[in-house]
């Protein structure tokens, strides 16, 4: 909840400064993902990020998608099916299937 408050502040700031940004929200989780539905991250056009949508495995990829979303203005629903062995093997600790909705905000 505290996290999302920070994200909301960042959304307000982006709007005030006329910075283009995208909002990524965890909308569906199957299995034991680190973050639950409703977790948010805002990514601005300078790739500055506020908030967390996974235990660290997805943030970079989502930021890349966010860049496209900011450019196109069209939201994207992205599904990540994380192989448990691979993810645990990397020590990232966020297995499961997660869907993330990335939408432009301006």
């Amino acid at each position: 909840m505290l996290e999302n408050t920070r994200v909301i502040e960042a959304i307000r700031a982006a709007r005030k400064n006329d910075t283009k940004a995208a909002l990524a929200t965890v909308v569906r989780v199957h299995g034991s993902a680190y973050r639950r539905e409703g977790a948010k991250m805002i990514i601005d056009e300078d790739e500055k990020r506020v908030g967390m949508i996974s235990g660290g495995c997805l943030e970079s990829d989502v930021a890349a998608v966010a860049k496209e979303v900011i450019a196109s203005g069209i939201p994207v629903l992205k599904q990540y099916d994380m192989d448990e062995d691979l993810v645990w093997g990397l020590g990232l600790g966020c297995p499961g299937k997660v869907e993330i909705y990335i939408e432009p905000i301006s």
Binding site: M1, L2, N4, T5, T25, V27, R28, E37, G38, Y101
Partner: peptide
Amino acid sequence: VFVDVFVPQ
């Protein structure tokens, strides 16, 4: 449809 619910801290 994603329903995002906010309840106060």
